[in-house]
Nucleic acid binder design. Structure first.
Lengths: 240, 240
DNA sequence: CTGTCAATAGTTATCATACAGATTTTCGGT
DNA sequence: ACCGAAAATCTGTATGATAACTATTGACAG
């Protein structure tokens, strides 16, 4: 750990921030193992050419982050880094079609089943909500507006109609990542009228089956819809 | 903010920790809005009966947590609290069968599809891994050991064999929450020999279909397996 | 009356020194 | 070799001071 802080670098923040970041860097680059003792505050202060006050505040930061544990009289000890919780399914690389298709496959599995459950379990109010969102998608198409938000709302309403919060939770986590239009605004497989009409027709088949309480038809309609999306993306793979 | 720190309370940690926690409490209880200025360091020190050094270190903690932004000459300002990222699908209430069944329904949707894809896409090495984990489950059954870890490993290997990282990611996120044995160690629907043999047989059907490259049979076998789990839990609902 | 500038007051950032309390190391005695 | 005491080391806290920055106030000119 021979990092001298750049005292004249205003963009790096205060000395406390600089020393804290230097220590973080030392920790993450493997200079210290879990359970190791950092150099003493006095030594760190000397190494960085700062006062002990600065070092103590930097260490307070690291302690707050759970990276170290100071023990009075003994030293400052390195803790097991806690894995930062990150939401899954977020790192969709929109420039790579395969990244989109992969998430679409997972989503298909969930949403096909969701459509079936929704057909069995939806309440009249949920059924009505689904119709309303379906009409909203149609409105966007008629007005030439982007459909992704309305599209996602429709899919969310279907997940809600399963009355199993896990399906709603899944939709919320993947968010609009998995809605083709949001993921590919400029290189969309087709913004043509015929594509949008096809989309709307596929939606209609899903919504009707759910309304009819026909679980198998709902599943099949959703499968056709989402496999259509997959097919369109795979077709893009062949043309690029 | 009239909190006097309990100086004689050893369990509360150092003065820095106590003041930091008092400030966190004040922030989260709505004493300050985003953009508000905290009292000056000198004032906080006076209020708590500590030195300014302690207050500065406490504020360094809060800054590291993203809760405040000190501005030299101006004051310490309250920041917008960032939503802590939490993993989805974790809050399984093991005392409520409905909570377990809900997650099992979602998992079923994903894993039925995963079995189908695995049957089509698995490499010989992945096929071999599936068999090995299947044998490991059988070994646990034969030795009367808990099967949940081996069971989860088998399911994970199947998700891996889809060669779509999203399926593996899904299994990793839900973890062993969704494996019946882990979720219900003491009130398990049955630890009887016949149940375990049934489990092993269902696994064998899945594994064989994947090995045969029969996607539809793999899906059906996985569906039977997981719907069997659902059925066993629903039967518990009726007896409690 | 409005705008500008300088002075003042207030605030954070850093440094230095000192002491207290806890832990670790060293040394001497048995 | 083991134990206990003393010394050394280390973190926790307090105090005082200075530097750099911001906000406020008052005076003056147009």
């Amino acid at each position: 750990m021979n990092l001298q802080h750049p005292r004249n670098d205003k963009g790096a923040g205060t000395l406390v921030i600089q020393v804290a970041n230097a220590l973080r860097s030392a920790l993450s680059s493997g200079d210290y193992a879990v359970g190791d003792k950092l150099p003493s505050e006095a030594r760190i202060a000397e190494t960085h050419g700062v006062s002990r006050t600065v070092v103590r505040e930097a260490i307070a930061s690291l302690r707050s982050d759970g990276l170290v544990e100071p023990r009075r009289g003994a030293g400052v000890f390195v803790l097991e880094p806690t894995e930062p919780a990150t939401l899954p399914f977020q790192n969709v690389d929109h420039a790579r079609l395969s990244s989109i298709i992969a998430l679409l496959e997972l989503r298909s599995a969930v949403e096909v089943e969701a459509a079936g459950l929704a057909a069995v379990r939806r309440s009249p109010a949920q059924e009505e909500a689904i119709f309303e969102f379906h009409r909203a998608v149609g409105q966007c198409i008629a007005e030439g507006k982007p459909t992704s938000t309305a599209d996602f709302a429709l899919h969310t309403a279907i997940a809600d109609a399963t009355n199993n919060p896990r399906f709603s939770e899944f939709l919320r986590v993947i968010g609009q990542n998995a809605i083709p239009r949001a993921a590919l605004s400029s290189t969309d497989p087709g913004s043509s009228k015929s594509y949008l009409e096809q989309l709307h027709l596929e939606h209609a088949n899903i919504v009707t089956a759910i309304s009819d309480g026909d679980a198998e038809a709902a599943r099949e309609a959703m499968r056709v819809h989402l496999q259509g999306s997959q097919r369109r993306y795979r077709a893009l793979l062949q043309t690029t």
